[in-house]
């Protein structure tokens, strides 16, 4: 006993911790500033020819020009209205079909083969056909976006309804809750997290199809603007247009985040 107490007591070495990545404040802005500074330095020193890649300042000038000339407003308005109509129509129809397929065997039996057959078609390939049907104007572009949004929304629609725990439905049945009330009070709120996650996917699809459709045949719109700038080798305008798209994507993602927080407070 005496011997043991005489021996030096060693500290138990700490072996835990780590593997908990967090976010450092300001890191994002710092990285952005560094990239812009390096980019500007490369441009200013002549390492990066303006024809290949304009400098950040040139992009800013191009952006200011767009703003002053009013082109930005016109193009953005055209694009926003196409995306808003296309996404809303595609989402409304997709949710109606998807939720019906989540509830009724008949809807599911008909719907799944149709969706499986049509889902893999790149919807932009249908634009020429849609132009023949609806003309070169807005409806053909809106329809392309709506179709592109429709199919993934159908799939998230019925899989979100499938994911609602069946024990909640049995519970409602055990209290004799009527069928329509089960759909409204249990299936729909229960499917909401999945449906909102699907909105993120469908909104990015809508943006891709918007740009593609505008590049194929449109006078106005951010996609058309980018294409024209490329044809004229105005890389500063081109990059400014890309930045506008990126901001548009971020704005949509922000709005969806707000919507999720508002609707899923309970989660």
């Amino acid at each position: 006993m005496a011997e043991r107490s005489m021996a030096a007591a060693e500290l138990v070495r700490f072996r835990g911790g780590g593997f908990e990545p967090g976010l450092r404040r300001g890191a994002a802005w710092l990285v952005l500033a560094l990239i812009l500074a390096a980019w500007q330095a490369a441009s200013s020193s002549g390492l990066l020819p303006a024809l290949v890649m304009p400098s950040p300042l040139q992009v800013l000038h191009a952006f200011a020009d767009m703003w002053r000339s009013g082109r930005l407003t016109i193009d953005l308005e055209a694009s926003l209205s196409r995306v808003a109509w296309g996404w809303t129509i595609g989402t409304a129809a997709g949710l109606a079909a998807g939720i019906a397929m989540g509830i009724w065997s008949s809807a599911r039996s008909v719907g799944i083969p149709v969706v499986s057959a049509l889902f893999p078609i790149p919807k932009i390939a249908l634009l020429p056909l849609l132009i023949l049907w609806f003309g070169i104007g807005e409806p053909s572009k809106v329809a392309t976006i709506a179709l592109g949004v429709f199919f993934p929304t159908v799939i998230t629609g019925y899989s979100s309804v499938d994911a609602v725990p069946r024990n909640l439905i049995r519970m409602a049945q055990s209290f004799n809750v009527p069928r329509h009330a089960i759909i409204r009070k249990i299936l729909l709120p229960g499917a909401m997290p999945g449906i909102l996650a699907g909105f993120r996917i469908s909104s990015s699809i809508a943006l891709i199809l918007l740009v593609a459709a505008e590049m194929i045949g449109a006078e106005h719109g951010v996609g058309a603007f980018i294409l024209q700038a490329g044809n004229l080798m105005q890389t500063d305008q081109l990059v400014a247009g890309v930045v506008v798209l990126s901001v548009l994507g971020l704005a949509i993602s922000y709005l969806l985040g707000r919507l999720e927080r508002a609707l899923l407070r309970w989660g």
Binding site: R170, M171, F175, P178, A181, P189, W266
Partner: peptide, 24 residues
């Protein structure tokens, strides 16, 4: 019934969950 896994609606408050049985 009273269920083993409670079967409560997570998006409803306690009062709301009790109300579900009465609303119809």
């Amino acid at each position: 019934y009273v269920f083993q896994d409670f079967a409560l609606l997570p998006w409803r408050t306690v009062a709301g969950n009790v109300a579900l049985a009465l609303e119809h």
